[in-house]
Every structure is written in C-alpha cells, then in structure tokens.
C-alpha cells in the first residue's frame, strides 16, 4: 500500500480549503441561477453592496429583491439544521465522536460562509479605498474640505478672510433649522466660521456680525450702515453691523 507523505493536519487543511472553494462556487452558481445574471455580475453586485460607508447604518441593498445575508442564512439554516439533526441522532445513539465531527462540520461551514462574504466585502472595501484615493490624491486639506462642503466652506473661508479679530454673530435664516438642509449646513457654517466668528455662545467679543443663510428678503436684516462683507448669490451673506 502506498503511503502519502502528507501529515494528518495538512490533509485536513487541504480538505477544508477544497470544501471552501466548492462552497464558494456553489454559492455563486446558485445565485447566478436564481438571479439569472452572469457569474461576474454576481461578484460585482456583492462588491457594490457589501460596503456602503455610513456612520449610522451600512444598508445592504437587495440584488433584484434578493437579500444577500438572508440567502446566506437560508443556506446556513438548511445545512446546519440537517447536520444538527444528524448530530442529535448520533448523540442519542451514543455515537459521540460522530456527533462531535458533525458539530465541527457545522462550525466549519459557518466559517466558510463568513470567509466568502468577508472576501467579497474586502473587495468592496478596496473599491471604496481606490475611489477615495483617486479623489484625495494631491489635494490639500483645504481642497478636500472645499470639495466636501462646497458653498458652506467657501462662505466660511471668505468670511474669515474679510474679518479681523474675533466676533460673535447672529445666525439668521428662513429655512427650518430642524430639517435638511439647514440642520446640517448651519452646523457646518458655525464649525468652519469658528474661531473668528462665534455663533451660539458668548466668547466675550463684540456681537456685531450677521450671517444670513437662505434669507428670502436679506434687506430686512441689513441696515444702511451695515457693511456687506460677503455675498454669495444672495444665499450666503455676511454683514458687519456698524
């Protein structure tokens, strides 16, 4: 009898790797059949969906009304339940070593599911990284902020350039500040105007500045003596009260 020069552990690892590859192919094949899309499209669909950066919730969009994790769970529940029942039968029959092997098989299968999704997720993360890198390449911090926050940042920079020393300001708007876009944009403006212009708290400097943000009738708030320091399309106005 020919003995293979492979250790038991190595054989186990090889078998595990082959099983994982087979599972991955089966997963993609089943999805391709159900969704009726090419193999590459299955992978691309995962890459687009598995990493959608958001500070509050990474949403997982369906692929043609098909939820990726739901499918994986269905697959897992189907196979895990079958194996679990088989394990219980063996336990009842006092075949403990077989029951233990089945348990390990279940756990291995779970990790197969995890690793496949993680690989696909990693390529999704890589997509996000390459897009971010392309966007941020050779841009200064100021350029990036300008790109992200557009008019709000531009307004803040122009305002800071026109003012000397520190001031306090009144923030005036006709938009509802507990709704978009004012709820976030007002905060961006306050953040970038600080420290030259403080809105919302007393820093012991003169309160002699008005920030008019999307005010329908700006003239209502501008006196004859006031100096208009910044005016961006009558939507972003900075005035100095005199």
């Amino acid at each position: 009898m020919i003995q293979l020069p492979i250790k038991k552990d190595t054989l186990f690892c090889l078998k595990t790797l082959i099983c994982f590859l087979l599972y991955s192919l089966l997963y993609i094949f089943i999805l391709k059949s159900i969704l009726d899309i090419p193999y590459v499209a299955v992978i691309e669909a995962h890459k687009e969906r598995l990493c959608t950066p958001n500070s509050d919730l990474f949403t997982l969009k369906n692929i043609k009304d098909f939820h990726i994790y739901s499918f994986t769970y269905f697959f897992m529940v189907l196979i895990v339940t079958s194996l679990y029942i088989f394990a219980i039968i063996n336990y009842i029959g006092k075949n403990f070593s077989t029951a233990r092997s089945i348990k390990r098989t279940i756990l291995l299968f779970m990790f197969f599911c995890f690793f496949l999704l993680t690989f696909l997720q990693q390529s999704s993360r890589y997509n996000v990284l390459t897009k971010d890198f392309a966007v941020t390449k050779k841009r200064s911090e100021s350029d990036k902020k300008s790109m992200l926050f557009k008019e709000e940042y531009e307004f803040a920079i122009r305002a800071k350039n026109k003012l000397s020393g520190r001031h306090q300001a009144e923030f005036l708007t006709d938009l509802k500040c507990d709704e978009d876009p004012c709820i976030i944009n007002s905060r961006i403006i306050k953040y970038f105007l600080y420290p030259e212009v403080t809105i919302g708290f007393d820093n012991k400097t003169k309160k002699d500045v008005n920030v008019l943000y999307f005010v329908n009738d700006p003239q209502k708030y501008i006196n004859d003596k006031d100096e208009i320091l910044v005016n961006m399309n009558n939507e972003y106005i900075l005035t100095l009260r005199k």
């Binding site: 949403t59 994790y69 897992m76």
Partner: peptide, 19 residues
C-alpha cells in the same frame, strides 16, 4: 442580522451558542 454593519458575525454567534 440584516444590516451591512456586522457581516454575519451575530448569526455565527447564535449558531455557536446552539452548538
């Protein structure tokens, strides 16, 4: 279990508890 936040880690944790 159904958001993109946690991969399938919570499901694996549940199955691990069962096993």
């Amino acid at each position: 279990f159904l958001s993109g936040n946690w991969n399938i880690v919570w499901m694996i944790a549940c199955v691990s508890i069962l096993l």
